[in-house]
Amino acid sequence: MPAVKKRRRSAQAIDMTPYVDVIMLILTFFILTAQFKAELAEDIQVKLPNSGNDTTRLPERNVMTLVINKFGDIFADVDNIKVREDVLGDPIGLAAFHPDSTTQPGWNNPANLNDKGEMKRPIVAFDDREKFKKLLIDFRLSSKSNVGKDLRIVVKGDKEADIGAVQDLMDILKETKNTRFAFVTDLEIDESKENK
């Protein structure tokens, strides 16, 4: 019996130092690699199409994002607040244009744009094609004078969007001399698409 008592009393304190060291390393890794989603990504929801070949990553800064949702609306946005204030007159404004006059713009109903059904950012609607073209040019000029760098253009289209809207956007880009741009896609993991 005394032997048992003795064992009980010698409760061991585990040295936590190596454990904490490792956890701190992991924590540092996650803090450094963390990238917080841009405001826009939350406001307009799109399902990206998959592609398997390209390995180019999405550029992080000085990006003009052109979002096409499934209603065929085009949203133009830049990541720089100054540029937005300069061109749109609102630091969190979001420019929108609906190229197809035969259909109704989807942004009339905020429930179309995201799950929450409300927009954090006010929409600056453009109803004229020429004005929208001018906006794209203004974005680039303002970026050049404010940031000193040219904007890179990415097109983020919804899977379900009509190609017509994409074609209209490509025409606009071509007319505004923006001949280099990129389509944003998700990396395709399985090959199931091949057997469609």
Partner: peptide
């Protein structure tokens, strides 16, 4: 350790692992 674990959990949860890629187009 408790606080650090909380922070760690937060960063693991919020980190976006599948970063979208882009397909370059030249018109």
């Amino acid at each position: 350790v408790d606080v650090i674990m909380l922070l760690l959990t937060f960063f693991i949860m919020t980190s976006t692992l599948n970063q979208p890629q882009v397909m370059q187009i030249n018109l």
